[in-house]
Computed example of a mutant assay.
Amino acid sequence: MRLSTVILPIHRWAKGRRVWEGAEELGFHAAYTYDHLSWRSFRDGPWFGAIPTLTAAAAVTRSMRLGTLVTSPNFRHPVTLAKELISLDDISGGRVTLGIGAGGAGFDATVLGQEAWSPGERADRFAEFVTLLDRLLTEDAVSYAGEHYSADEARNIPGCVQEPRLPFAVAATGPRGLKLAARYGQAWVTTGDPKLFETGTPEQSVLAVERQIGRLTEACAEIGRDVTGLGKIMLTGFTPDRARPLDSVDAFVDFAGRYTALGITELVIHWPIADSDFAADQAVFEKIATEAVAQLG
């Protein structure tokens, strides 16, 4: 099991740099950030761009992987995103993972002045977005005319450092998204079942993730892919037990053990932020980072 962290882009770089350097010093496999223009309770506070933040982080870290959890089509276009990702992959020396999802109906969905897309349109756009982005990151020149996105001789030379392209971690729970994860993903991302967040139990959450993995397995089988070769990432903090896994090393090991037994291969915990949904004791957090993986075996 790999343990990673997600660092929200809320700090001016003079402070943010120390956080990203600290994540590498603690031995996290990867450090991710959210790719939003603002987010929920942080909307009226500082919030910086994901790609510039990851670029700065790439310059002050050496081995830790970096990425987004997650990027969505809400305010991105595949052509411009591909250029930024190729640049970031080069600057980082091939350490980038793109977490990507369909997006939701929050602030990002309307900030450019458009109406929020329906769930069906989000799914349509996501499928086209991922398909085109895959081509843009693997081919030198791409022309494409789709229903939602187009490219006219889009050039991406020399391409990614990682071959054939940087890995995709596809966030999905519905049938169409799971098929995209099976076809294009090097990993799959879940936060659990959002319907259980307020009123569910930890036991129900485990069963829900088990069912998600079962559907992912079926999606892989349909195209002849072995699901064991697909990484399974769980972004924590959105299950009914929420912050309790960060109360102690033992609490985290108990929580993590239940999900790794299902086949989760990477758990992602939020870097503590005081007076927020992600508040946690920093000393306990650091102890989890340095001791939990060894206890999990």
Score class of each variant (00 low, 15 high):
V60P: 07
F48Q: 01
V227I: 09
H36Q: 12
S205N: 15
E139Q: 14
H36E: 11
T260H: 08
E84H: 10
A50M: 00
A116W: 11
P164T: 02
S276L: 10
Q295H: 07
G120E: 12
E25Y: 00
E153P: 00
G103L: 13
D108N: 12
A105L: 06
T260M: 10
G200H: 11
G185K: 10
P167G: 01
T265C: 04
D90Y: 13
S41W: 01
S92P: 05
A261P: 08
V293I: 12
G93A: 10
L216C: 08
T53M: 12
A294Q: 07
S118L: 07
G120C: 00
A292M: 08
T53Q: 12
A145L: 11
G99L: 10
F75A: 03
T199D: 02
S205T: 05
L262Q: 08
E21N: 07
S118K: 07
S150L: 02
V227A: 08
V209A: 08
A208L: 04
T5C: 14
A219G: 09
A30M: 06
A221C: 01
K15T: 14
G297Q: 10
S87K: 00
G214R: 11
T138L: 00
I233V: 15
T191H: 08
A172R: 02
R165T: 00
L207D: 14
S63D: 14
E147A: 14
E266L: 00
T290V: 04
L296Y: 06
H11D: 07
A154E: 14
E222F: 01
P52N: 10
L246N: 07
W20H: 03
D193Y: 03
V19E: 08
A23P: 06
R18P: 00
T68M: 08
G16S: 10
G104E: 07
G45Q: 12
R183L: 11
E291C: 05
I264G: 02
F278N: 10
P202M: 09
G174C: 07
Y34F: 14
L81W: 10
F126A: 09
G106K: 09
Y32L: 14
T97D: 14
A243K: 13
D277E: 13
P164S: 02
L180M: 13
E286N: 12
L85S: 04
L133K: 05
K287E: 15
E291P: 06
A154Y: 13
T110Y: 11
Q114E: 15
T239W: 03
G93D: 05
S143K: 03
E286D: 13
R165K: 02
L196F: 06
I7L: 14
T61P: 04
S92R: 03
D90F: 11
H270D: 03
L262F: 09
V227N: 01
L267C: 02
V111F: 08
T191V: 13
F285T: 02
T61L: 09
E139H: 11
V227Q: 04
G113H: 08
H11T: 01
A283I: 01
E84W: 04
G297S: 12
